[in-house]
């Protein structure tokens, strides 16, 4: 297996295109586990952590730019980002242990394309976009368009995500992410829900977006969420409708981590609870 650690995006893209069976490594917390399990044999690893712009967080007039190799500890430790996007930060902070937090990256979490990735539903709720660079140049896509199935992405040969772009936050806007795991730490989500809300001056939801995780081959955008939540103050019947819609949108599987029935129910509970947290956070701003 070949190992390269290029210092620029162009070099990385060239290496990815040139090396047979090459994979991008940022934190490596998924990749090295796959490497150890022996399957599939990797031809090469392109380590992107020496590329400065992939490891930095920048606040601009348009919002935030978060490098794809930024690790969880870096993101949760960034005060301005955590204030603007508490839900995305808490999703990143849920990935693995303290040790994993020191390595696991946002880009890796999204591009590993696990249906249970914690940051993807939160990024979906945040209307985050990914900047992709490849042999054909740069393109920008919505985060929900990256994963196409378990372990599969829409990235072409030689392409990689270099940064995530999150929009600027208006007043009275906040997000939240919750997941269900059997323990308190160290598990993969059995279901997850990210909710982003913007309220008007009267505390009425003006804009809402919900992403769901671990209940379908890829993280889902809950399309009906905006209809259900907009114009409400999250009254009980509204939350019940949200939970029901989340459960109905889910197309989960039975596996060692949970049952179809369980995931359908719990994703609704999580959506409801995350909405309440986001609502409270937004109201405090």
């Amino acid at each position: 297996m070949e190992y390269q650690s290029p210092a620029s995006i162009d070099e990385a893209v060239a290496a990815l295109a040139a090396l047979e069976g090459a994979r991008v490594m940022a934190g490596g917390t998924d990749l090295l586990v796959q490497l150890r399990s022996g399957a599939p044999r990797l031809g090469a690893i392109v380590d992107v952590k020496k590329i400065a712009e992939m490891c930095s967080i920048e606040e601009t007039a348009e919002g935030f730019s978060v490098g794809a190799a930024v690790c969880g500890a870096q993101l949760t430790g960034h005060d301005a980002f955590s204030r603007a996007w508490p839900g995305v930060a808490e999703a990143a902070g849920l990935i693995g242990s303290t040790q994993i937090q020191g390595r696991a990256s946002l880009g890796g979490n999204v591009c590993n394309a696990s249906p249970a990735a914690d940051t993807t539903p939160a990024l979906i709720a945040a209307r985050a976009k990914a900047e992709i660079v490849g042999p054909g140049g740069r393109r920008i896509v919505e985060v929900e368009k990256i994963a196409t199935g378990p372990g599969k992405t829409s990235l072409g040969k030689g392409e990689m995500v270099v940064r995530f772009l999150l929009p600027a936050r208006p007043a009275r806007a906040a997000d939240a992410y919750l997941r269900m795991i059997p323990r308190t730490e160290m598990d993969i989500a059995v279901a997850g829900a990210g909710v982003s809300l913007t309220l008007d001056r009267g505390g009425v939801v003006a804009d809402a977006r919900v992403g769901l995780g671990a209940v379908a081959p890829t993280a889902l955008v809950l399309d009906q969420a905006a209809d259900i939540l907009t114009g409400t103050k999250l009254e009980d019947d509204v939350l019940a409708r949200l939970a029901a819609a989340a459960g109905a949108a889910a197309t989960p599987i039975d596996d060692k981590r949970g049952t179809i029935d369980y995931r359908r129910k719990v994703v609704g509970v999580l959506a409801k609870r995350a909405a309440l947290i986001a609502y409270q956070r937004a109201g405090e701003r």
Binding site: M180, P182, V190, G258, T259, D261, Y262, K265, V266
Partner: peptide, 8 residues
């Protein structure tokens, strides 16, 4: 007594 069993 895992969460799915308890909920069921």
């Amino acid at each position: 007594f895992s969460p799915p069993r308890v909920l069921a």
